[in-house]
Computed example of a mutant assay.
Amino acid sequence: MRVDAHHHVWDLSVRDQDWIGPGSPIRRDFTVADLEGEARAAGVDRTVLVQTVTVPEETPELLRLAAEHELIAGVVGWTDLTRPDVADELARLRGLPGGGHLKGIRHQVQGEPDPGWLLRPDVRRGLAAVADAGLVHDLVVLPHQLPACAEAAASLPHLTFVLDHLGKPPIATGEREPWASRLRALAALPNTVAKLSGLVTEADHATWTTGDLRPYADTALAAFGPDRLMFGSDWPVCTLAAGYGQVLETAEELTAGLSPAERTALFEGTARRVYDL
């Protein structure tokens, strides 16, 4: 059994995905049905569906999808963390159809011009409400924002922070610092977890090799360990550089040196525990 801890779906007739450029091969609809065959063929039995846009209407839609599809075991949605009544809003979301599938909240911090956005008092208040609701917080950030992630995690020890895509290291250029040092500082905090996801799209889409990704995966494995790492496909964004099966096979290559128990943790156990699947 395997868990894919990070994927998306969208329907452009319902809502534009304005982060996708004109002419991009992923500027089309992607549905759960599109994913299901590929996931099952790869031995993936459960998934975590993650938000893509910062609008309040999307999360209820994702929760309904989770209620309708056995494949989706959990949802990481969005709500405005700065709203004064964020605790009430989280309770409302959990009361909606499929609301029991809400496992975490994510904000597109990578798009915030303030590198210390996570440290704002109103944001910290929202993050505390996420923790009080028994949810986790997914971090989608760029390397220069990792220090603020570590400071936020240190100030909120009762909240689990899940780093998406290893903080988007600069794989295409081959640089490792200061990303690696910042990642290790975040991983030193016990309430942090990371996803082995999104690496192929940080590399050169046309020429990447497993060897290009290995130094970054090895850094994460040494920092977090398999009990605090989880596999995510980042489908369909990954299709810009690789198909679903290839992404999973690459993750298997990158973790081939782990013991069977460690591989079970990375491909299933960590996600089940962290997201309470």
Score class of each variant (00 low, 15 high):
Leu35Gln: 01
Thr239Trp: 00
Ala206Thr: 13
His7Asp: 02
Thr210Leu: 13
Ile20Val: 15
Ala222Asp: 11
Pro147Gln: 09
Ala251Lys: 14
Ala256Trp: 01
Asp34Ile: 02
Gly134Pro: 06
Asp132Ala: 12
Leu166Arg: 03
Arg28Thr: 13
Gly211His: 04
Pro169Ile: 05
Gly167Ile: 05
Gly100Met: 07
His144Ser: 06
Thr54Asn: 05
Ile171Gln: 07
Ala271Met: 11
Ala66Asp: 14
Gly211Trp: 04
Pro169Gly: 07
Thr59Met: 08
Glu252Arg: 15
Asp218Glu: 14
Ala222Lys: 12
His107Phe: 03
Asp204Phe: 13
Ala261Phe: 06
Asp11Leu: 15
Ser259Tyr: 00
Trp235Cys: 03
Gln108His: 13
Trp10Gln: 00
Gly134Cys: 15
Glu175Val: 00
Thr54Cys: 11
Gly198Met: 07
Leu163Ala: 03
Val109Lys: 06
Gly225Lys: 01
Gly98Pro: 10
Ser233Asp: 02
Leu254Phe: 13
Leu248Thr: 04
Arg46Asn: 08
Val109Thr: 14
Leu142Met: 12
Leu93Met: 10
Ala256Phe: 00
Asp11Asn: 10
Val55His: 08
Ala187Met: 09
Ala188Asn: 02
Arg272Thr: 09
Tyr216Pro: 03
Lys195Pro: 01
Leu254Val: 05
Tyr244Glu: 10
Tyr275Ala: 03
Ala217Gly: 08
Trp179Cys: 05
Leu127Thr: 06
Val14Phe: 08
Pro97Gln: 13
Ala223Gln: 05
Leu102Gln: 06
Thr250Lys: 00
Thr31Gly: 06
Ala150Asp: 12
Asp80Thr: 05
Arg125Tyr: 01
His101Arg: 09
Leu63Thr: 02
Glu58Tyr: 02
Glu177Arg: 10
Asp34Met: 04
Leu102His: 12
Leu258Gln: 04
Glu253Ile: 06
Thr270Trp: 03
Glu249Phe: 15
